[in-house]
Design a protein around this nucleic acid. Structure first.
Lengths: 231, 231
DNA sequence: CACAGAACTTGACGCTGGTCAATTTAATTT
DNA sequence: AAATTAAATTGACCAGCGTCAAGTTCTGTG
């Protein structure tokens, strides 16, 4: 049985990659690996859904996951996208809460899960873990609060410009690749596919960007976009 | 000198009231009190502002504080309101971050401050503190994400109905008192004073609520409001 | 490489809700 | 209780953007 070999493999892949574990010693990490479980999801597959009982912390190791809410009206609100190393289900750590959001693999994705009780133990044993999680939390909260501000005080054009610039900053190159479909982007920015499409077209007409394919955008006039933000 | 007496007083008032300290022993609390400073703010006074260097954790002991963002356009986005026992400035705990929001006392307010370095020490010494903070954090994040969803998928009427019901739930009585001006409520719900006013008027015309004075509302038909949410 | 289905674009139209301005009402102060 | 100020209401107007519907362009799969 290659169970043993499998576990070592998982350790290298999963735990060591995650910011809030990677300061621990190898021995300590092994302890964590013993408590974690590795799972695979195919593109489009649901990882958890509204109404599920939340019992695990999920850590994305490979792939990409989107978290969204779904309303009675059928409208979707995309909350965030998880890249490798990020986690979700953190509410599970404190209470037996019922979920009110959905998590879906955007492409084939590998995930590590750790049960609530084990996480509690780990935090007690290695207090620094809690501090690390806290750090990530505060960044997320920060980002979410900014989104709230944008949603209610800026028009779609401005929000879109802001998003493009943010993306360009991260990659620090004029060519950017949208990490999601325009439909999802619309959901994230609190608008519709159609409006996103119209605004991008007008950006292009103005000579500020150039679109190639469905997800590739080259920024031609950063300053023009930037101007929008402070108007 | 009544410094000593003062400190004991402060301890009882401030630290013991806060959820993430109140599980500690009296002796441990005293240690924390030694590191905290007590401050008073008058109504309307600014506690911190955009651009300030963030160095302290602020714990509200008495009064009420509003946190908001301010945009170039002059628009305000109210993020949340702190009641006694809640805290702000938590980003200070991790990095030397510059603030991008404002905190203002909504009435005469007493606050305890603890310096970042001291907080770091405390968390190392009493790991449970970090876990408690984490708990509050995750609730806030949850609330903020819900707000995002509402802002971008529901119309003002629905958001307002949702807010009123939420408030009624907390107090579990038909008569509710707005914790803020309608102007601030508008800012929180991502709309304008005028629209809030219009919607409340129409609720009243429909016989669903009754307004008395500027901040008192009696809910007459809970079900009608509730219907709006799931349409 | 072709083809099917998904993703995106474009147009026409109407409604929600933002803006500006003028009153009215409530809250505070003296 | 009157006076002053702050908060809220109401009306008129119109722009942004959501909706529905019909095309067009990608893209990944066989």
């Amino acid at each position: 049985m290659d169970n043993k070999g499998n576990q070592i493999n998982v350790m290298q892949l999963c735990v060591s990659k995650v910011p809030f574990f990677n300061h621990l010693t190898t021995k300590e990490m092994r302890k964590i690996v013993d408590k974690s479980r590795h799972r695979n999801f195919k593109k489009g597959e649901s990882i958890y859904r509204d109404g599920d009982q939340l019992e695990y912390l999920y850590i994305v190791h490979r792939g990409r996951v989107k978290i969204y809410q779904l309303f009675e009206s059928g409208k979707e609100q995309l909350l965030r996208i998880l890249e490798p190393g990020e986690f979700m289900g953190e509410l599970a750590l404190f209470a037996e809460k019922t979920l009110d959001s959905y998590a879906e693999a955007m492409k084939d994705t590998e995930i590590c899960t750790i049960h609530r009780d084990d996480m509690q133990d780990l935090m007690r044993e290695y207090p620094t873990i809690a501090v690390k999680i806290l750090e990530q939390f505060s960044n997320r909260l920060d980002k979410t609060e900014k989104l709230v501000g944008q949603l209610s005080t800026k028009d779609v054009e401005t929000r879109l410009a802001g998003y493009l610039l943010e993306l360009a900053d991260e990659k620090s190159s004029p060519g950017i690749v949208l990490p999601m479909s325009k439909k999802d982007l619309a959901s994230y920015l609190g608008t519709t596919q159609e409006t996103i499409s119209r605004r991008l077209s007008s950006f292009q007409t103005d000579g500020w960007i150039e679109q190639k394919g469905h997800r590739n955008i080259k920024i031609l006039d950063k300053d023009a976009l930037f101007e929008l933000l402070s108007e």
